[in-house]
Design a protein around this nucleic acid. Structure first.
Length: 174
DNA sequence: AAGGGTGCCAACCGCACTTCG
DNA sequence: ACGAAGTGCGGTTGGCACCCT
């Protein structure tokens, strides 16, 4: 059995303070992201390396966008999720300034529900005939959508249709 | 005003994968 | 080739904020 990544009784847990954030930012600006395990003692933080990495990647990194997701980002997430499943880090990699945690949270809180309302199964992106019927009858867009359990990649209103290959799948260069 | 319910997001946990000696 | 250590990832949870009654 693997040892825990850090001595839990010797580290802080819970929300990060501004003071801790600043220490981590200062250290990484000086020394770079290097070895996470060595960062907490070197930076004077009572946190485990994992916690530092998570805080930096999800919150402190200077290139993070934050704020609401745009329609184009939303559509891209849905398309990528249809292709990749719950590979959040891969999906986030296609969204500049977004983190896997952010994408995952957004999916679980917004997009999942949105797809369900549209009559789409968020797990496999297949049309769910019962709910889809009412949704599409309102929208008059996909009258034949429920035929043979069609995939819905092409039903999204993505802003970059030119980026899709002939097969209907985006050129993701994964 | 209060309290209960719900949604959201930051952070934790544990497993899987990668790297290194 | 193998095992230990380090890192990354996805699932889950805790707690705060907001809304509704």
């Amino acid at each position: 059995m693997r040892k825990p990544c850090c001595e839990k009784n010797e580290t802080n847990k819970g929300a990060w303070t501004k003071h801790e954030d600043q220490k981590l930012i200062d250290y990484i600006q000086k020394h770079g992201e290097g070895c996470w395990r060595s960062i907490p003692p070197a930076a004077g933080l009572l946190r485990c390396g994992k916690s530092c990495r998570l805080r930096w990647v999800n919150y402190l990194r200077p290139d993070l966008k934050r704020g609401n997701f745009g329609q184009d980002e939303e559509d891209l997430i849905i398309k990528l999720h249809a292709l990749l499943g719950n590979r959040w880090s891969l999906i986030a990699g296609r969204l500049p300034g977004r983190t896997d945690n952010e994408v995952k949270n957004y999916w679980n809180t917004h997009l999942k529900r949105k797809l369900l309302q549209m009559g789409i199964d968020p797990k496999n992106h297949h049309i769910r005939p019962t709910t889809a019927k009412s949704f599409f009858s309102n929208n008059q867009e996909r009258n034949s959508a429920e035929d043979n359990n069609t995939r819905v990649l092409d039903s999204m209103s993505g802003p970059h249709p030119e980026s899709f290959a002939v097969s209907g799948l985006p050129d993701l260069n994964l």
